[in-house]
């Protein structure tokens, strides 16, 4: 169990983490979401005592990280897969960690086997792809068989097989009763990985809840296709519906399907498609964090950069 209370971290003028409070419970996978630069990594570093908070506290099973007697046996963390000495072999990276916490060396071979790196264990870690480095990072988090696990953007760089493996694996760790916190800036990834979500933006809590709770917070949309474009647009304007045009369909937000069908029928407009689209978790996430995005790219105009 990870408990974060009123955690605040200021870097100069920049408030990286702003009065953040949440609890990560054991037995489920908790997704930690937010746009780039929203403070996810800083929060994880604060939990691990790597950065000292400006105010507030973070505890693991009621203890500050610095107070743990054998940290790797209580908390396993993957912060940055590429943060290792490129010249040392994968196996020796793990042996160094195992020695420091008096973990048996047979456990090193065990975790290498779990993440599927046994065959490349003696290769220099600097030659690893990002995906292989992520696996090595996951192996080091597992080394002490800890009850609490934290993974910062573990899915980056994994191939499709690896993504599926990691999802099942996180679920399995949670099913064993462990506390699992996984960060990502991609809701589409986390929707399939996590059961509970903590969403932050600009260092502040935006919302927290289960998959179902989050889905409800967005509104559904209805896709309409019709041969009579002008007449349908007129109808939409008359009724003051919110509508946008996609390549081959009109998309109307926040109006029940039956209402659109009835009004089109009354106006004598034939419909070739009338379908309600369930709001995706990704849509809710985009809507929720829209105001908190640190870096926004602009849409490219055709033929111009």
């Amino acid at each position: 169990m990870i408990e974060v209370q009123h955690l605040t971290k200021r870097f100069g003028d920049n408030l990286a983490v702003d009065d953040l409070s949440f609890t990560v419970k054991p037995g489920i996978v908790t997704g930690f979401l937010g746009p780039n630069g929203s403070g996810k990594s800083t929060t994880m570093r604060l939990i691990l005592g790597l950065n000292s908070p400006t105010s507030g506290t973070a505890t693991i099973n009621g203890q500050r990280f610095a107070e743990l007697k054998a940290p790797l046996r209580e908390v396993g963390a993957l912060l940055d897969a590429k943060a290792l000495h490129p010249g040392r072999s994968a196996r020796n990276q793990l042996v160094a960690l195992a020695l420091s916490n008096q973990i048996s060396l047979s456990r090193v071979d065990e975790v290498l086997d779990i993440v599927g790196l046994t065959d490349v264990a003696n290769r220099r870690a600097g030659d690893f792809s990002l995906g292989m480095s992520q696996r090595l990072g996951i192996a080091s988090a597992l080394l002490g068989d800890p009850g609490t696990l934290m993974f910062d953007e573990p899915i980056n760089g994994l191939d499709p097989e690896g993504i599926r493996w990691v999802r099942d694996f996180f679920q399995q760790l949670a099913d064993e009763g462990r506390t699992v916190l996984v960060s990502s800036h991609l809701m589409s990834e986390m929707a399939l990985t996590a059961d509970h979500f903590i969403i932050i933006g600009r260092g502040r809590m935006i919302t927290e809840g289960s998959k179902e709770e989050l889905a409800k917070s967005g509104t559904g949309s209805v896709h309409v296709r019709t041969p009579l474009h002008q007449e349908f647009k007129q109808l939409v304007a008359d009724k003051q519906w919110q509508m946008r045009e996609e390549a081959d369909a009109f998309v109307i937000e926040g109006v029940p399907v039956a209402e659109i069908g009835d009004q089109s029928f009354a106006a004598g407009i034939p419909l070739h498609e009338l379908s309600a689209r369930e709001v995706s978790l990704e849509d809710s996430f985009m809507a929720l964090t829209a105001g908190a995005v640190e870096y926004t790219g602009r849409r490219m105009r055709k033929g111009k950069l």
């Binding site: 570093r45 691990l48 005592g49 790597l50 990280f65 610095a66 743990l68 940290p71 790797l72 908390v75 963390a77 912060l79 940055d80 590429k82 943060a83 290792l84 000495h85 490129p86 960690l97 420091s100 916490n101 080091s140």
Partner: peptide, 18 residues
């Protein structure tokens, strides 16, 4: 410095907080 440059100092301190 190799630990600071590569970032592995974080892994080191996440195993040994002192």
């Amino acid at each position: 410095t190799s630990e600071f440059v590569s970032g592995s100092i974080r892994t080191t301190l996440a195993a040994v907080p002192s």
